[in-house]
Amino acid sequence: MTLFENTVKLRGFLVKDSASPPSDGVTDDAFAVLFLATMSGTWNIAYSEWIPRTTCHRIVCPGPYFCGFTRGMKRGEYVEVEGELYVYDYERPVVVEGERFTAERFRCEVRALQVRRLERPPMVVDTGEND
């Protein structure tokens, strides 16, 4: 048993094409970025309906290996990512009624440890008719 663990496993569809540097620009500190959509939701008991929610996750894939592996990944591909969750703060300038303030913001991202292309699942469409 480990005392602390920071692991994330996501499976979903790419929202857009992968962003990776060109092959002649790959260095040891290069990285590729994927945007992965996952779906979840909640059941509204009062109306007896499912309320779906789609979340887009920013996946940072560090290193030359990932830059080469993710290059060519296109929007709509079905992938699985295992990695670690990183949360960091940054300050953002905000103007309210002509006055300048700084607002603390935070950003979450997943740093990939493993990326797998998966076979696209068969789509099931509910036509509302019972056979």
Score class of each variant (00 low, 15 high):
E99C: 00
F66P: 11
V96E: 09
P93D: 00
R111Q: 10
C108P: 00
C67Y: 11
R58L: 09
G98L: 14
I51Q: 09
Y90Q: 08
R117P: 00
T102D: 01
E99H: 10
R92K: 13
R105L: 10
L14H: 02
V125Y: 03
T27Q: 01
E104C: 04
S20M: 13
V33Q: 10
K9V: 08
P21V: 05
P22L: 03
V26I: 15
A112R: 09
C108Q: 13
T27K: 13
E99M: 08
V8M: 07
R120E: 02
V110R: 09
T70C: 14
K16D: 01
E91S: 10
T55N: 04
F4R: 13
A103M: 14
W43M: 12
P52Q: 00
S18I: 06
E82R: 15
P93K: 04
V87Y: 06
A32R: 14
S23R: 15
R116N: 03
V110I: 15
V110W: 05
H57P: 07
T70F: 11
I51K: 15
R117S: 03
E97K: 15
R92M: 10
K16E: 00
E82W: 14
G98P: 08
M1D: 00
A37M: 11
F4H: 12
T7C: 11
G25W: 05
L36T: 09
